[in-house]
Design a protein around this nucleic acid. Structure first.
Lengths: 240, 240, 240, 240
DNA sequence: GATGAATGAGGATTCATTCAT
DNA sequence: CATGAATGAATCCTCATTCAT
């Protein structure tokens, strides 16, 4: 008789050994949710434990303090982020516009739409209280992200596909809508009436559209025959 | 009778209450700083009192609880926000591109660069813990802001200056960089090395440039003779 | 009307200012009792607070942690000890036997019979858990005490009043009964039936008598005409 | 039937239970060390188990609670003490001075220098928390010990070897240095620099010397020809 | 028996709030 | 009004004890 059927005989109580391996992950997931929702100080460890289905004491078997739990959450989900990011990095190269759009949509699917995205909001809220973590986050997430986007933009500029004056700041034209979407969904979004919810795919489509029209240098035809954009010159606003 | 005259009716005791009236303002300012930096739960009322130069007990003479203090902070600085926003609203109308750029720079000067901008970060962090405040913020700030931007964009579309597919989402192409700038300056920014700081004016200039190229329908000359942008068609990204 | 009568008028609520100065002392006294009785780990801070007539939180206004409270107790009562010790040190010099007896009785009256003596038991019990304090206690109390006694013994030897082979160890012949008396009174004594209680004055008289006969070199007459002791040679026991 | 034979009656299963019977011994030894070092409350049962090489759960198979473990430790090592004490009691009788010295050195070798001596420190520290144990300790250890020493002193007095005014308190002149040595070695000693360590054999030699000079009535020659002590009269200190 | 994961009562510590001065 | 000492509910964390494996 196959082994996996034997387990079914007395299935009800999940095996302890199995549980022990799963605990940290369950606790981290619960902690992420609550930290994102209520902030570090506003979250009670017991709540985290209960949400993970264990008692207060059990949490401390795996994380020596609330602060360590917090750090572990950030590290764990930053790990997820980075892996996803690096995978996305290694794909489709041409043309730059497609690549940029691809990066954005991939980023959304692999990070923005996942639980891990809560880390972004978390860092925004708690940076001042955890400066070491904030620095860590900068080094491990922000800088690589900025570099990745910058390389795509630079690539477009090199191939004359993009016309960008200030690439360093242009990077934020890509990042800002992505951050905005995440922050919205993790803060004001859940408090908004249905009529004001953001539809992520429409939102991203719109942002990609405006963004690309904003950086493309000239009209061109994509490899699939879709007409794109032609930009002539930089606009300089008349500001006060 | 003009509204601003009504205040004169009971002007006499103003001098007497000045001292008393000044206290709440100092407390609110101190509270704003600390709430923004450390979050609601992470801020101690004693710290607020100390920063405002009064004792802990005095704070409770003016605000019946920490939560009431928090609400007062939000309402106070939302007031500032709204007044600034509405004033900006009532000016320069043509052309739409200039108006948009003007709105953005005004918004920065009158709100983004002020202490009041901390409220934005605060609401992002605390929305889940103060749903009624979040709703209030949405109603009083977000919706009017979106409506204002939308009206500018719509205006541009109406005059054929702008070509925008999805105006509702395009609004966020304006909002996102502004939010990003505020959040950066109130969270990760202070934790970053000097080399990675954002220069607000360059940042905004870059965002305005890309944004306008992204929404303008066609090349045009601004009233001051600067050449701007010509966009031909909407780009549709080749995504998975 | 004398001032102390005025206080009687509205006596019930003791003045707060007065209280604040008294608090630390009251807390230290309560803490000494309980730490001596139950040990550091076995004592609850709330118990200390209650015995001092305040609430849990008040204790932490004066001592930042249980451990700091403990250290403060030791330092406070070591201070008492040292002051008493130094005063005793500066008196009656001759003859050495009188001086030794005087030191012992003074030590008892000024230290052994006071609350401060609990520190001795405390250090015996907690030395391993507070090595820094133990070292502090050694440096500040034990070493000076040993030096003091040693100087008295040496004085007696110099004047040929005492005959002592091993002065360094002889010091403990003075210390041991004193320690014993303290430890007895703070540990087993309170658990003993009345029939087995030690009478300190008899105990000390007996110890002084045996001790002096044990160290005196030769018969002599004290200045008050009491006959004393004559010792001829050192006894060397036949041990296995 | 001699008592020691009774154990043979059910000797057969001994081998089988040896393993099982060994465990409690290892646990008791580990527990003694830790209780002595850190006190009852300061010792964690898990630490005891680890030091004994078993798991936390196993400890509770043998001792139903931490408190029972503590009592078992005291009883176990008091047993050791008593056996050693009674054996020492039954030997060498003359002269009283030799017997006293013999008792002291035997006591040191058979008890003071062994792990069991930790019990003495333990009882000093924990008497107030375990009154029933303290009473047990008094009945089983202190009283017999005092009686033993008293009988030796009385014997010396009866033979005119000793001149002692207050025999009951004189007993403590014997006990005090012994207690002192044990307490020193189990508390402050381990925290002291090498330069201040006590050398037990020198310490005891010195104490015995002073003690015997302190109680002997007159000069005499020991059976090995060593000259000893002559005391003429009781010293009465001039105290305040 | 032995294990060690899990529990939860208990104790240290914090901090919003009160109130006598 | 202003103060800051005092309070105690709330929270983090520990550790004796249990129990499924």
């Amino acid at each position: 008789m196959p082994q996996f059927l034997e387990n079914h005989a007395n299935a009800a109580p999940v095996k302890r050994e199995r549980r022990k391996d799963a605990r940290p992950g369950e606790l981290l997931a619960a902690a992420l949710d609550l930290f994102v929702e209520k902030g570090f100080a506003g979250t009670r460890v017991e709540e985290v434990a209960l949400r993970a289905g264990v008692s207060k004491g059990t949490l401390f078997l795996y994380f020596s303090s609330k602060e360590e739990l917090f750090k572990a959450v950030v590290r764990e989900y930053i790990g997820t982020h980075l892996r996803a990011g690096h995978e996305a990095l290694c794909v489709a190269k041409e043309p730059a516009a497609d690549m940029l759009a691809f990066c954005i949509t991939q980023w959304w699917e692999r990070y923005g739409a996942t639980k891990a995205a809560g880390i972004t909001k978390l860092m925004m809220s708690e940076a001042a209280n955890f400066p070491e973590l904030a620095e860590f986050y900068q080094q491990e997430v922000i800088l690589p992200g900025r570099a990745l986007i910058r390389s795509v933009l630079q690539h477009g500029v090199n191939t004359s596909e993009f016309a960008i004056d200030d690439i360093d700041n242009a990077v934020f034209a890509v990042l800002a809508p992505l951050m905005f979407l995440i922050l919205w969904r993790h803060s004001l979004g859940p408090c908004s009436p249905a009529s004001q919810q953001l539809d992520p795919s429409r939102f991203l489509k719109s942002q990609i559209s405006i963004l690309l029209r904003g950086v493309l240098a000239t009209q061109r035809h994509s490899d699939r025959g879709r007409v794109t954009v032609q930009t002539v010159k930089t606009y300089e606003a008349k500001t006060a």
